Computed example of a mutant assay.
Amino acid sequence: MAFKVIKPGLMALIQDLGRHGHQSIGLTTGGPMDEMAFRWGNALLDNDPNNTQIEITFGMLTLEAQADTSIAITGADLATSLNGKSITPWQTYAIKKNDVLTFQQPVWGLRAYLAVKGGFLCQPVLGSVATVVREKLGGLTGKGDKLQKGDWLEYKASSEHKQRAVPRSAIPDYSQTDIPLVLSYQYQSFSSMERAHFFSSDFTVSSNSDRMGYRMEGNAITSDIKGIISEGIAYGAVQIPKDGQPIVLLRDRQTIGGYPKMGCVTSYGGGILSQKKPGDVIQFTPMTVDQAEHERHLKMARLNQWR
């Protein structure tokens, strides 16, 4: 049984937690841009944490159910409706055969996640179904295609449904403008004045942003070095290219790069950033490794305790 794609929307992608262990051969990880929203979606349905979901960017997606099931919607509010009746994210809903689920344009945030009981059934490529369009890997076809009109998103039919909602205190605040960043070993290539400039400046999300990376626009940041020998790129790395405009590298990032880096945004900070639209304004806030680990531990402990 399946959801039939009536309208594919702007960008709807099959995702799990990512394709790990292959960066040495040039393949990136992929996976959900907003990891905590993804994890809560599976938790609401008692799914395995890695069960496949749909990441819906900017909405405009319409699906028709071909069998009963239970779903969870997390992440952004994309003005979702079920059979024409408005529904809100961060909770579960019972789905009956012939129900129509529609995602419109964002009310707040940018990316929503649709989880189904037991996960969507897809054939993994290199151990993952994560869709990376640039690398032509993952998704329904295994070739990195985004969802198309007429696609069938298979799942196991289920009449079991539990009405659940994420605790309000655990729902991220997508209006947050401070993005936490852990300084890298290259931050000393920036003068103390440039560092102060970086952390006290407002940056605007560029329209030239995607799953590979978010480009920032603001006052240029200058490094004492113009380039480095290419090296591996970690999730969240904030590169400062020659034009001085920061680039935050995210889930579909390249695996190596040769620009100096101020640091890395945390996984939670990257999730908040991924919900920002072009034109939104953010600031970077310094955080130590210990603080970042403590923040992640608390958020994961809350989720696991709720499970």
Rank of each mutant, 00 (worst) to 15 (best):
G271L: 00
K96I: 02
S206I: 00
K7P: 06
G119E: 11
G26E: 13
I179W: 06
E154R: 05
I233K: 01
G213D: 00
V289T: 13
V281N: 11
T141M: 10
P124V: 08
S267D: 14
N47I: 06
L61G: 06
G109H: 04
E35C: 01
Y187N: 14
E154S: 10
D173E: 10
I171F: 05
A301T: 13
K299P: 06
A165P: 11
W306K: 08
D252M: 12
G232S: 00
W152S: 13
Q254R: 12
S175F: 09
G84A: 11
F103V: 07
D173G: 12
T177A: 15
K242G: 15
L27T: 07
T88I: 13
A43Q: 15
Y187V: 15
R111L: 07
K96A: 01
N50Q: 13
G75N: 10
D224Q: 15
G31P: 03
G30V: 02
S128C: 08
S191R: 01
S175N: 10
D210E: 06
P180N: 09
S81M: 05
P278R: 10
K97Y: 00
V289E: 12
A165S: 15
L181N: 00
S24V: 07
P32H: 04
E64D: 08
A234K: 09
K96R: 12
S267W: 08
R302T: 12
